[in-house]
Write a protein that binds this DNA or RNA. Structure first.
Length: 844
RNA sequence: GCCCCAGUAGCCCAAUCGGCAGAGGCAGCGGACUUAAAAUCCGCCAAGUCAGGGUUCGAGUCCCUGCUGGGGCACCA
């Protein structure tokens, strides 16, 4: 900025400005100055011309609920460090932004305001977009997308149809999780402790005909491919996914349910899943899930009334009550007997709610001696307990404690004498040979319930015809657009989708027979939208398919994904599933979409998550107004390692602002010209600079961003000292140091760094600069301090050459008067020498 | 109940392979500059690493036990 312009500005902002405008740091001034320059230069749009190695950095895209908040500020600050570092390192970096813009809040707002959800949604997106721009992120805005745009959801629907063709999208009538408040079904993953993940309302069960994705078919691949992610994803996220998929090895064993004496029920085969086939001889009763159809099929006529009554009782329980593991065991005898295929023993068949209808086969053989749940049930109903594995523990029947450890099999005919593991193998062998069972693997994972009875989502592109049944909407009729004439109350949840009431939309001609038909009125879970958005960024305007497969080949997988751990299972598991299906469709050539994952911590205030109800929220906009963008970003990054929480009450944005001003002022004191040879400069300062470069690079790569900032502070301090009390501002080493400060700072504080870069006489943008190379010669010290210990305690320090020989160091150490005094004539047992830094003398 | 992570100055946090407990910041204290204040600059202060045990010449770091805090899972046969 020229002096004339400065003077002009001074009059505009008052008399005091004249004193400060020239040489004082003003975040407001620099925030106003640079965004237009960045836009004009197009710094953050990747070249995509193959001239550089490509890297894809992605932050989980936001949901447009109001303006950005402190959480966004932290997450995006972290992702930007990586994107900017890689750009400086010479990579062609893709760092796009978009919005996950379908979802319930928009609908609720529309109902309240008698408006259309799009109005609220796109207004919020505009607000957030402006805030993102202010926040100085190195984003490529040319690829911006919104999942609620018809051009986007057209392809969400297209993908649904491809899944449908492959048998991966299907409908079934099944008891599902139902949120009474949101009036919609929920996926298993969206039920937390028996309550709706979104609103906290206790979830109930409801039998409904719903759409599912067959994610279970990919359970083994979702599990196995995690090997690729180990070391690159946080261990706890992998653990949570492993846990959620819940692979367990065991056996399917067929039991024969005997016909009733009066012939009212005939003989029937029922399969159980067990992980403990070694305990087959210990089975003393048989249980089926009370809410499964199987219970009603099996029940003997004289017990039917009792079962019906029990089922009513079970239905009345909330999910929260049902999941309480301290509950007394309940159940009802079905009047039937199951024959153990190994022992031939007859076992009474019971129905109980501790057996789950949708895990395994919904039926179990109960082995009370070796399973705590079965034992609790046996004791409640006076059923026999028979130990078949001698673990050395006391009899479970007496103690009430089932024994689950290792031991030797007893009372089990052909299995006697075997260990647990041998018994499992042998029992599987026997049932397989007899044709009454087989070894198998079972998963905890359930299919993904994707239909929602809400308006603001991608309509499911299926038409129901009386003649042809389910008919997919032909590709050339996509997208199935949402009607835009529904308002307010018309969108209110009624238990069925609001779309059902839009008669003009619902009634269509069947694409196959032309006869009268109705559109499917459910919309897709918004997690479907977000399961493939990272691919759409690669070719956001592509019209031949959801994405350009060539672009996917160039850019995928995402090299660094950044987002909150709250998506550990939901979004990340679904996206992994989608990727695997796309691979099978030969649209992509990789198995995992996100090669590396970083979970940023939360922003707390006073030890607690910010929330309206606690009234401890901190407004991001106010923080930015008060301290400036760079100071807020710096505070986020400096406070702690990225994955740790930041407590806003514990940190100091004003301290950050002070540091930034201090760094910026260095630029005012550099008097050498750009391009001077730093080799002529002060060696001590150069040594600090080059050490900082070396360390900062390693630290960024290790994601220790907070330490990078600390190193930058050290360099700033050293440079200030060199200017004021050393070689002075004209020394070429000072220029080199300040240029390094600008480049490192650009990772976190782009405005300040850019302004500093300009003050040093460089053309914008600092984002186009290169991460400096360090000179290893400058990292070598003239002397190092060797520590001399006696028995591990420091007794002397010696200044020695870094390449001192072990023997010489040993002699020097032993000659130390301090050492001699401490040794006090005692002999020496050993001397450990780690030249050049340490000697440890062990006295006799 | 089971599994995972973390405990270092008053506070937030550093500390390659086990090798001098301290890099950086906040707060505090003192000084310089100022008529004064703000801003700025300089300096100072501070823990022996949650507790106990073990391995080692040497442990914040490795092993065991416990305590505290945080997170995940939880009738999944």
């Amino acid at each position: 900025m020229s002096e004339q312009q400065t003077a002009g500005n001074a009059t505009a902002s008052g008399a005091d400005a004249a004193i400060t405008a020239e040489n004082a740091y003003s975040f407001a001034a620099i925030e106003a100055k640079w965004p237009a320059v960045w836009d004009q230069l197009g710094v953050f749009t990747p070249k995509d011309d193959g001239s550089r190695e490509r890297r894809y950095v992605l932050d989980m895209f936001p949901y447009p609920s109001g303006d950005l908040h402190m959480g966004h500020a932290e997450a995006f600050a972290m992702g930007d460090v990586v994107a900017r570092y890689w750009r400086l390192k010479g990579y062609d970096v893709l760092h796009p932004i978009g919005w996950d813009s379908f979802g319930l809040p928009a609908e609720n707002a529309a109902i309240k305001r008698n408006a259309h959800p799009a109005e609220w949604t796109y207004k919020n997106i505009d607000t957030q977009a402006a805030s993102f721009k202010r926040y100085g992120l190195s984003l490529d805005w040319t690829r911006r997308l919104h999942t609620s745009d018809p051009e986007y959801y057209r392809w969400t629907q297209w993908l649904f149809l491809r899944f449908y063709e492959r048998g991966l999208a299907y409908r079934k009538n099944h008891p599902v999780n139902w949120c009474p408040k949101d009036q919609t079904v929920l996926a298993n993953e969206q039920v937390v402790n028996g309550a709706c993940e979104r609103c906290g309302t206790p979830v109930t069960k409801k039998a409904l005909n719903q759409w599912y994705f067959k994610i279970t078919e990919y359970a083994d691949r979702l599990l196995d491919d995690m090997k690729e992610l180990e070391g690159h994803w946080p261990e706890r996220v992998l653990a949570m996914q492993r846990n959620w998929i819940g692979r367990s090895e065991g056996a399917h064993v067929d039991f024969t349910i005997e016909a009733t004496g009066d012939g009212s029920r005939s003989e029937q085969k029922v399969t159980v899943f067990t992980t403990r086939p070694d305990t087959l001889y210990g089975a003393t009763f048989f249980v089926v899930a009370a809410d499964a159809d199987l219970a009603s099929e099996l029940v003997a006529p004289e017990q039917a009334a009792a079962l019906a009554e029990y089922q009513d009782r079970v239905k009345a329980l909330s999910e929260i009550e049902r999941q309480n593991t301290d509950r007394e065991k309940t159940g009802v005898f079905l009047g039937r007997y199951a024959v153990n295929p190994l022992s031939g023993e007859k076992l009474p068949v019971w129905a109980a709610d501790y057996v789950l209808a949708d895990y395994g086969t919904g039926a179990i053989m109960a082995v009370p001696a070796h399973d705590q749940r079965d034992l609790d049930f046996a004791r409640a109903f006076g059923l026999p307990v028979r130990a078949v594995l001698d673990t050395g523990d006391e009899d479970p029947a007496a103690t009430g404690m089932a024994t689950a450890g290792e031991g030797t099999i007893v009372n089990s005919g052909p299995l006697d004498g075997l260990s647990k593991a041998e018994g499992i193998a042998k029992a599987i062998e026997i049932v397989e040979a007899a044709g009454t069972g087989e070894g198998t693997v079972n998963y905890r994972l359930r299919d993904w319930l994707l239909s929602r009875q809400r308006f603001w989502g991608a309509p499911i592109p299926i038409i129901h015809c009386e003649v042809d049944g389910e008919v997919p909407v032909p590709d050339d009729q996509l997208p199935v657009r949402l009607p835009d004439d529904l308002r307010g109350e018309q969108l209110a949840p009624k238990g069925t989708s609001p779309l059902a009431a839009a008669e003009h939309w619902v009634n269509v001609a069947c694409p196959q027979c032309g006869g009268p038909a109705r559109r499917d009125t459910d919309t897709m879970d918004t997690f479907v939208d977000s399961s493939w958005y990272y691919l759409r960024y690669l070719s956001p305007d592509y019209t031949e398919g959801p994405f350009d497969t060539a672009a996917a080949k160039r850019w995928m997988p995402v090299a660094q994904y950044v987002g909150g751990v709250e998506h550990a299972i939901l979004h990340l598991l679904y996206s992994r599933f989608f990727t695997k299906v796309l691979k099978d469709m030969e649209l992509v050539d990789f198995d995992e979409p996100f090669a590396a994952l970083m979970n940023q911590g939360q922003v707390l205030n006073g030890g607690k998550a910010m929330s309206k109800s606690l009234g401890n929220g901190v407004d991001l906009g106010e923080q930015l107004d008060q301290y400036g963008v760079d100071a807020v970003r710096l505070t986020m990054v400096f406070a702690s390692p990225p994955e740790d929480d930041v407590d806003w009450a514990d940190v100091s944005p004003s301290g950050s602002a002070k540091f930034l001003a201090r760094a910026w002022r260095l630029g005012q004191d550099v008097t050498s010209e750009p391009g001077v040879d730093p080799a002529q400069g002060d060696r001590a300062l150069r040594s600090v600079t080059h050490r900082t470069i070396a360390e900062a690079g390693e630290l960024v790569e290790a994601h220790k961003f907070n330490v990078v900032v600390a190193k930058a502070m050290e360099l700033v301090n050293a440079t200030r000292k060199a200017i004021d009390a050393g070689p002075g501002g004209s020394d070429p080493a000072v220029r080199e140091a300040v240029e390094t400060v600008a480049i490192i700072l650009s990772l976190v504080a782009p405005y300040t760094a850019e302004d500093l870069w300009a003050a040093l006489g460089h053309e914008p943008s600092v984002a186009n600069a290169s991460w400096p190379a360090y000179d290893p010669a400058l990292l070598v010290e003239d002397t190092v301090t060797a520590v001399v210990q006696v028995q591990g305690k420091v007794r002397d320090r010696l200044e020695v050459s870094p390449d001192i020989a072990e023997a010489e160091l040993r002699e020097l150490a032993l000659a130390s008067p301090n050492v001699q005094r401490i040794l006090d004539g005692r002999g020496i047992r050993t001397v450990i020498v780690r030249a050049p830094k340490l000697v440890n003398i062990v006295p006799a």
